[in-house]
């Protein structure tokens, strides 16, 4: 069923012409340290070739975006001895990094084939038996780390509450232990509810629409910044990881890669997103 959907969607998208044609992204080796490369503004990124990927609004599975706000994504890639780096840059005049008052966060993602290849794995979140491995960054998580967890009082600075039952106080860090009875999402370790994130990203596995599941163990890193009305986000992931649900990569190989963007200002979230077909990532370096 999903394969039929994949193939018919491919046929449908073929009608949109060259807008979603494949691009080869070249990933050149670098000797700059990982920590430096994680800065999107680092000088070294300028020597990496830039590819332009056309992004389209998701219009296959409801609820859909009939009209998107982003048309293009600029991608650069690099590789160190053990790490693959992907730098994504797109124009977004507003940095949407709030979630306390009904807003939605800007976000982006990179997708790899975890088991198969571009021929048998749907670029639309994978399909049963052919999972995809996704690195997902959210602006709100970047803000959580840089500025502190955006909790209720961040959205309502003048709020008053007398007390929270069984909590030691009213701040985020005071809500723990028996007080978590009122916050089952936190006591169940829902990845959306992590108040002490170390990275502004998560790794996911998916086998089709609506199946994306956060991995318990995070191997990758990310860092994003907003300047000059653009977001630029760098993902770094080990080429090889001990996690069997991750895609494993090798220097000198070519792999399918895809991207997604979310515009918080227009209430993008979940399937309401911008996406593209499989592109090719040519990983440099000595195999």
């Amino acid at each position: 069923m999903k394969n039929t959907l994949f193939l018919s969607a491919l046929a449908l998208l073929g009608l949109t012409g060259p807008a979603l044609a494949q691009t080869t992204i070249e990933s050149k080796p670098t000797r700059t340290s990982l920590d430096e490369m994680l800065k999107p503004g680092h000088q070294e990124w300028q020597s990496m070739p830039e590819s332009t990927i056309k992004m389209a609004p998701q219009n296959i599975a409801k609820p859909m975006l009939s009209k998107g706000t982003f048309q293009e994504l600029k991608v650069r890639s690099s590789v160190t001895k053990n790490w693959l780096l992907i730098r994504m840059e797109w124009e977004d005049p507003n940095a949407d990094a709030e979630l306390t008052r009904g807003e939605f966060s800007d976000a982006c993602a990179v997708q790899f084939c975890a088991k198969g290849d571009a021929k048998d794995t749907s670029p639309f979140m994978g399909n049963p038996g052919k999972p995809v491995h996704i690195l997902h960054w959210k602006a709100i998580w970047q803000a959580d780390i840089e500025l502190g967890y955006r909790d209720v009082e961040h959205g309502y600075p003048n709020m008053y509450v007398d007390y929270y039952p069984l909590a030691e106080g009213k701040k985020t860090e005071d809500i723990k232990g028996p007080a978590l009875q009122y916050n089952p999402a936190r006591s169940l370790n829902n990845p959306m509810s992590l108040t002490q994130r170390k990275q502004p990203m998560e790794e996911l596995v998916a086998v089709g629409f609506g199946s994306a599941t956060s991995q318990a163990h995070l191997d990758a890193k990310a860092n994003g910044q907003h300047s000059n009305k653009k977001w630029s986000v760098v993902f770094a992931r080990p080429l090889e990881t001990p996690d069997p649900s991750d895609s494993q990569l090798k220097a000198g190989s070519s792999v399918p890669i895809a991207f997604a963007l979310w515009d918080g200002a227009t209430r993008n979230r979940g399937g309401r997103k911008h996406y593209c077909m499989w592109q090719t990532l040519k990983i440099g370096g000595t195999p």
Binding site: L99, D151, G155, T172, I175, N183, A185, R186, M192
Partner: peptide
């Protein structure tokens, strides 16, 4: 309803 502390709906 949306819970801004857990960022899930309840």
């Amino acid at each position: 309803f949306y819970n801004p502390h857990t960022r899930t709906s309840e």
